[in-house]
Design a protein around this nucleic acid. Structure first.
Length: 528
RNA sequence: GGCGGUAUAGCUCAGUUGGCCAGAGCAUUCGGUUCAUACCCGAAGUGUCACAGGUUCAAAUCCUGUUGCCGCCA
């Protein structure tokens, strides 16, 4: 049976500056989902990339004394390095300056123009001369530029428009017929009452005020302006319109994961564009919240941008991935702070998971240096813990269906808590004292080790290094191959009692050393 | 200004269609334990559920108004 496909995307990021923890957040989330689906046997295509045109890129490059292309090539290298650092395993990385993409965008413009979905008009707005940018009435601060503060002038510019208004009724129907098309649900209400119902206006899709962009084929004075160029990446990355092999296989996307600031473009303009092109629509758009810093929006001007590279170097990939996915309810805004991060690391990773592994392995090594014996005496508490793990797995799967990463992790940690409690109840250190209790002790330790094995599988979509570290100590083979797969695949988490007899258990270093929070915060403070 | 969202323990948040003394995790305090990364287990809490009215036998949950914060306004 051929595998079912799963196509998931991140936004394409705008590299006018270094990416921060907020970008990492979207990408880590998509990576976790992609890893999960791969483990569930899907044929996954995970797309990410960069949006490389526009005036801001042009100016940033100029300031750096580089050509846009030079500048962008360097940025793209940096971004790929960041994803490598965070163990992001994407299948495609599109740059909107890729030759294929540029040609595809031109073809799309041409088609839309020919069929009358794009027409010539003029764009009126408030223009800021120093910034060379247009602003709307509402964006302007007292008639002045919100960026530089210069006085704005009313200006008109010739522009081509996309007939968004024509698709108004179809869009309304789309939202009404598919309550899961745009999540969270509140965003859909916003789109309907804020935009669709008052009446959609056509959108300007070309500019003449800058030239770092894709030339519009039917009018060389104009370059493509963001929407069509950026949004179409989701299909051009699959080869559309020339090479349809991947496109036919993967499109439509199963989910576009985006930040809430671009919900409007993805849920209105993008479907309308696809309708105009007579292509299938994505199944779902998920607009997640923002990662705030101490409750404040991150911005360069505030100087509170959190650099993911620094965090990973300091604390490791898995703690950062864990924090992002656990602490922030996907969909709502979350808050990053050094204190919150360290508290999570200490309580969840060091105390709960790390210590559980540590105490289990230590007892096995101490009492059964030759490995767990084949004969042991099972008790109802053991079965009860295994049942709990079964239920945990079911919950994790249900939560993942709705991209509720934080809840999935919460469930797994409830199982970890249950294991710690199980140790208290069974009191293995007492059993160790008397040799005649050793069969019972073997069962207790076996139950713990087997559940740790299952936990290692369940956390695999979220944490990329920890499962291997756990298996190493538990004496479970890792890596590819059937032998390893039987203990590490998602399906193996469904099955209990897989942990072998006489494993080569060895004590390792603590996976997550406890951090002295006050000292750590003080040293961070000192750096600033 | 318009539309929408949100306001619950020190912190981060759950609270389904209104119904037992309002919950979880973390942090705090106390007790237990000692296999373990001074960890784990247990207990104790603390709350005018933003404010003011209203509907109801009954509201954190519905309605109205006010205030704070947030997003969007092509």
């Amino acid at each position: 049976m051929p595998k079912e496909k799963y196509y998931i995307t991140t936004p394409i990021y705008y590299p006018s500056g270094q990416l921060h923890i907020g970008h990492s957040y979207s990408t880590v989330a998509v990576d976790a989902m992609a890893r999960y689906k791969r483990m569930r046997g899907f044929d996954v295509f995970f797309l990410t990339g960069t949006d490389e045109h526009g005036q801001k890129i042009q100016k940033t490059a100029e300031k750096a004394g580089k050509t846009p292309k030079q500048y962008l090539d360097e940025m793209a290298v940096g971004i790929k390095k960041l994803w490598e650092l965070l163990d992001i395993r994407y299948d495609g990385f599109i740059r909107t300056t890729d030759e294929h993409h540029e040609k595809a965008v031109q073809a799309i413009y041409q088609q839309l123009y020919e069929q009358g979905d794009i027409y010539k008009g003029s764009y009126e707005g408030l223009y800021c001369t120093p910034c060379e940018a247009f602003w709307t009435e509402s964006q302007a601060v007292d008639g002045h530029c919100p960026d530089c503060g210069a006085k704005l002038e009313k200006t008109e510019e010739s522009s081509y428009f996309f007939r968004l208004s024509k698709y108004q009724d179809k869009l309304l129907k789309l939202f009404e017929d598919n309550p899961e098309f745009l999540l969270p649900r509140s965003r859909a209400n916003e789109m309907i009452s804020n935009f669709i119902k008052p009446g959609l206006e056509d959108v300007a899709v070309t500019r003449t005020s800058f030239d770092w962009g894709i030339r519009v084929p039917f009018d060389p004075e104009h370059v493509a302006y963001v929407w069509i160029d950026a949004l179409s990446n989701y299909i051009t990355a699959l080869g559309y319109p020339d090479d349809l092999t991947n496109y036919n296989h993967y499109w439509p996307a199963d989910v576009h994961v985006i930040g809430k600031e671009i919900v409007r473009f993805h849920s209105l303009i993008w479907p309308a564009l696809l309708m105009a092109l007579r292509l299938p629509l994505p199944k779902q758009i998920f607009g997640h919240g923002w990662l705030l810093f101490d409750g404040d929006k991150m911005s360069k001007s505030k100087g509170n941008v959190v650099d993911p590279v620094v965090l990973v170097e300091k604390y490791g990939v898995d703690p950062i991935r864990y924090f992002l996915l656990r602490d922030v309810p996907f969909g709502a805004d979350g808050s990053f702070s050094n204190r919150a991060l360290i508290e999570r690391i200490n309580s969840d990773l060091a105390n709960d998971l790390g210590n559980l592994l540590s105490r289990t392995v230590a007892m096995i090594v101490k009492t059964f240096p030759e490995g767990l014996p084949g004969e042991f005496l099972e008790a109802p508490v053991d079965v009860e813990l295994d049942d709990f793990a079964d239920e945990t797995l079911r919950q994790v799967e249900a939560f993942m269906d709705h991209l509720e990463f934080n809840h999935a992790l919460e469930s797994i940690w409830a199982l970890i808590g249950h294991c710690n409690k199980y140790i208290d109840v069974t009191m293995p250190w007492i059993l160790a004292k008397d040799e005649k209790d050793h069969p019972r002790l073997a069962s207790v330790l076996y139950t713990l080790a087997d559940n740790l094995r299952r936990i290692a599988v369940m956390i695999s979509p979220f944490m990329t290094r920890t499962p291997a570290l756990m298996r190493e100590q538990l004496g479970i083979a890792d890596g590819d191959g059937e032998a390893a797969d039987s203990m590490t695949s998602w399906e193996s988490a469904r099955t209990r009692d897989l942990y072998r007899r006489n494993p080569e258990v060895r004590k390792g270093k603590p996976m997550f050393p406890r951090i002295d929070i006050e000292k750590e915060l003080a040293s961070i403070e000192a750096l600033q």
